[in-house]
Design a protein around this nucleic acid. Structure first.
Lengths: 228, 228
DNA sequence: TTGAAACAAACCGACCGTCGGTCTATTTAT
DNA sequence: ATAAATAGACCGACGGTCGGTTTGTTTCAA
């Protein structure tokens, strides 16, 4: 192989790029280190120079993903004109926008992430996302509680629960997608819509907010996402 | 090896026994099929006669565990003298009793289940438990909603959320255990206690129940469990 | 100023041990 | 007789190692 030298940052990012693509396309367990180095045009020695193990590569993928997510979220939480509830709604609105924008990739991601051979990938990403999100959400709830706009005496615990609930959103979205792909758009949209409403209600009740103050979804969102 | 023939049921249960022990002790990925057959005194041919893959063995372990859990829970939900809220509380009480009774094993289980090499085991068990619990909880909520003792217009979705929340209990228990093992009993107990109260509150609010109607925990439970 | 020696980081790819899984042969029960 | 159950040698793929090579940088004497 032609010997090419690149800056460590570039090289390791190339490896993470390839890994991300392969992991999502074929699954973590189905992708071999040899696959990764072939795609990245790098020798095995070079690979193990950057990552101590295949596992470490997975962690790098997850961490980078979480970091990018953080970069999207962070700005929303620094808008001083919004109170905590406004921030929550901004978060949901931003999340909807993102979902619609990246619907094709996202669908692909969901299908990949819930394959049985991808539990490790799923788990790592979940962990990484939780790690970056928890402090943000907790801080938001704390401020909201101080402001009096919501009720969360134990912001840490409440944040953990909210984020835990968010996981079931992913589960349901995946289930809805499957149903849609099976041809039953109406049922899929109805399920997703209904579920997201329940999710919104759960948050409102949990944080003792007035009915209708949380907008996780908007009319037609489920259909739009499924068909996008 | 001496050739011994046993009834399929006995044999496969022996294999599941060994697998369960090994998986929890050393982790799923760290346990090899060879380990299992050595412990079970069985040849590889015999093993693959009963299970098509190592993965299938994992599934069997998870399913049996879930089934046993179901056998514990089922009776509670068939007591006609209890309304839905009573059933929920009975569930929590039963779960507390079980936790205290089996504290040592349970602690071991937690420590094993949250090891990084055990994501597969964790995920499978979670899925299996969810599969058996979801219908039960959904039915309970449906009845409660009909009775008017609680508010859950979409029992399916609500059940999924409650069960999802339950996962974070496990997470927090694990974190508390770690803190306890690090020597800080007071902090650990406080964390666990506080968290379980928040959990109870979350359920009450979500189901529109009066304050104090759900008793996830009882005074001194956290300490008792940690020190058991 | 130069350039060569010394060093460290990046890289290569043949090789190794382990592990999940297969296959053929043999035994056992009916 | 035959089908299920068992044994264990064997296989290929995979993650990971290792000794060695290349490339860029630093040092320092001439």
């Amino acid at each position: 192989m032609v010997r090419t030298k690149k800056s460590p940052e570039v090289r390791s990012n190339e490896l993470i790029d390839c890994a991300e693509r392969l992991f999502f396309q074929h699954g973590y367990e189905n992708s071999t280190v040899n696959d990764v180095i072939r795609e990245a045009n790098v020798s095995k020695g070079a690979f193990y120079h950057y990552f101590v193990s295949k596992e470490a590569l997975l962690e790098a993928v997850a961490t980078r993903l979480a970091q990018r997510n953080l970069n999207e979220l962070q700005p929303l939480l620094e808008d001083p004109s919004l109170d905590a509830v406004g921030q929550l709604n901004a978060l949901f609105a931003g999340s909807r926008r993102l979902k619609l924008d990246m619907a094709p990739q996202l669908k692909n991601t969901f299908n990949a992430l819930f394959k049985p051979e991808n539990v490790a990938l799923y788990h790592r990403i979940d962990e990484a996302l939780l790690a970056v999100s928890l402090p943000l959400v907790a801080e938001m709830l704390r401020r909201g509680h101080e402001e009096g706009t919501l009720d969360a005496p134990d912001p840490e615990a409440a944040a953990l629960m909210l984020l835990q609930l968010r996981l079931s959103v992913a589960k349901v979205m995946h289930k809805a997608l499957q149903r849609y792909e099976a041809g039953d758009l109406d049922a899929a949209a109805a399920m997703l819509d209904g579920w997201m409403r329940t999710y919104g209600t759960a948050i409102e009740r949990f944080l003792k907010l007035p009915d209708g103050s949380i907008e996780v979804t908007e009319p037609g969102f489920a259909r739009a996402f499924l068909q996008a």
